[in-house]
Nucleic acid binder design. Structure first.
Lengths: 225, 225
DNA sequence: AGTCATAAAGTCATCAGATGACTTTATGAC
DNA sequence: GTCATAAAGTCATCTGATGACTTTATGACT
C-alpha cells in the first residue's frame, strides 16, 4: 500500500506552484516571479525552489529561459497519464495493454503481407516450448514474438506504448507477486498468427483476447481474495 | 519547430543518469551512488545533481529515501511513447485512441451500474444535437460524454491515456488539417450507451468501432490521395 | 551466545552566500 | 530617430555548512 506522502519541502513547493497554474492564476505564457521572490513567497531556500521548478519543467508545465525568467508553457501535463499508469494496479495495466494488443492484431490482420506472416511463424518456431533451463532466454524470445505482432500493425504509437507497458508490467510482477501467472501455450500463440494470416481483424482481436483471458482471470483470483 | 536543446548541465545530468537506467547498468531496485559521488562522476555540483534527480523522480524513474539513498524504481521509458505519439501521424493517433475507447467500452459494459448508465444518458441528452451556434460548448459537452464512457471502465490507466490522446489529436488537427472530420450523430452515441447497458462487452466494442469507422475512413481518404 | 539499547557513520534535505552567463531595459551619443 | 553601450534583472552553477533520518557497528547486560 502507498504510505502517506511524507512531506518534503520541494514537493510541497511543486504542488503549490502547480496549483497556481492549474487554477489559472498564472496563465499560459505568463512569467513567474523570480527565484528570490518565489523563495520568499514559499518560505524555502532558492535551491529548493529550483528543484521544484526543475520538476515542473520536466513535467511540461514550465520553461526557464536563462537571463529572462520562468514561464508557464502549458497547463496540461504530458507525463500525467504515464505516471498514472505507473502508480496504477497490475489489473489496470494489463487491461490497457490488452487494448493495445488487440488493436495491433486487428491492424496486423488488415495490413499483413506474406513476409510478415512468415516472420511471425519463424519467431514462434524459434521461441519453441519451455522445458526448463534458460528461462531468461525463453522470456526474451517470447517477448520478441509479441513485439513482432505489434510491429506488424505498422502503428508507431502502439509500438511505443506497448513497450512501455510491457516493461511496466514486468516490473510490477517482479515487485509484487513474483510468481506464476499462467503462460499461454504454443497453440494460443499460433492462433494469433493464423488469425492475422486470415486477414480477419475480428478474428485477430478475438484470438488475442482468448490468449489473455486466463491471465486476467488469474489476476482476478489473486486480487480479490 | 523544436529548436535544438541548449545544453544545460542539469539536463545533461538527467540524460546521463537516465541512460544508465535504460541501459540497465543501474538495475531496478538498485541504489545509486550517493550525491557526492554522483557529483564527482558527472563533474557537476551537488545542487545540480539534486535537480537532475528531482526531475527523474518526478518522471517516475527514481525514488529518494532520506537517510538511506536514491533508488531506481522503474526502467520503463516514458519518453519514447510520448515522443513517438507526438510525432506520429493522425491516423496512428486515432487508431491508438480507438483501442482505448473500445477496451473502455468493454469494461464499462462489464462493470456498469444503473447509476452510471443513467449518468451517460443524461450527458447524452445534455449534449443535444448541433444546430449551429455555440460550437465550443457543443464540443465540450461531446467530450464530457466520451470521458464519462471511459470513466465507466473504472480503469485509471485508460482514463489518463484517453485524455492524453484526446488532447494530442485536438492539437494535431488544429496544427494540420483544421478541417472537418465527420461527426457521428446522436444515434451512434446512443448505440454505445445501449450496448453498455446490455452488459455485453463484445457489443460495446463493436458499437465504438462502428462509431469511429467513418472518421477513420475519412482520414484514409485524406491521407491517401 | 543472544538480545537490545546506544553510538557512530552514511546519506538525503535544506539553507545561505557568492560568482558567472545571459537577456532585457535604460542611457546617451550621433 | 537609430544604434551601440552600460546597467539592471534573472537564471545557472558552485561551495560550504547544518539538520534529519536511516543503517550499521558497538558494547553492556542477561
Amino acid at each position: 500500500m502507498d504510505p502517506l506522502n511524507k512531506t518534503n519541502l520541494a514537493d510541497t513547493a511543486v504542488e503549490a506552484i502547480r496549483g497556481e497554474i492549474l487554477a489559472h492564476r498564472w496563465a499560459v505564457g505568463e512569467k513567474l516571479p523570480n527565484e528570490a521572490r518565489l523563495s520568499a513567497m514559499l518560505s524555502v531556500s532558492r535551491g529548493t525552489v529550483r528543484e521544484a521548478v526543475r520538476a515542473l519543467v520536466s513535467q511540461g508545465y514550465l520553461e526557464t529561459r536563462q537571463g529572462s525568467g520562468t514561464y508557464v508553457v502549458s497547463a496540461a501535463d504530458a507525463f500525467r497519464p504515464l505516471t498514472m499508469a505507473r502508480r496504477a494496479g497490475l489489473r489496470d495495466q494489463y487491461e490497457a495493454r490488452l487494448a493495445l494488443d488487440a488493436q495491433a492484431a486487428r491492424l496486423a490482420a488488415l495490413r499483413r503481407t506474406p513476409e510478415t506472416v512468415a516472420h511471425l511463424r519463424a519467431l514462434l518456431a524459434e521461441r519453441g516450448i519451455y522445458e526448463g533451463g534458460d528461462k531468461a532466454g525463453f522470456i526474451a524470445r517470447d517477448f520478441a514474438f509479441h513485439q513482432a505482432v505489434i510491429a506488424a500493425s505498422q502503428n508507431a504509437v502502439l509500438v511505443g506504448m506497448y513497450d512501455f507497458f510491457s516493461t511496466l508490467i514486468a516490473e510490477t510482477i517482479e515487485a509484487s507477486l513474483s510468481e506464476e501467472l499462467p503462460e499461454p501455450d504454443d497453440a494460443a500463440h499460433a492462433a494469433i498468427v493464423d488469425a492475422i494470416e486470415s486477414g480477419d481483424p475480428q478474428a485477430a482481436d478475438t484470438a488475442v483476447r482468448r490468449f489473455m483471458a486466463p491471465v486476467l482471470s488469474a489476476l482476478d483470483r489473486m486480487l480479490l481474495p
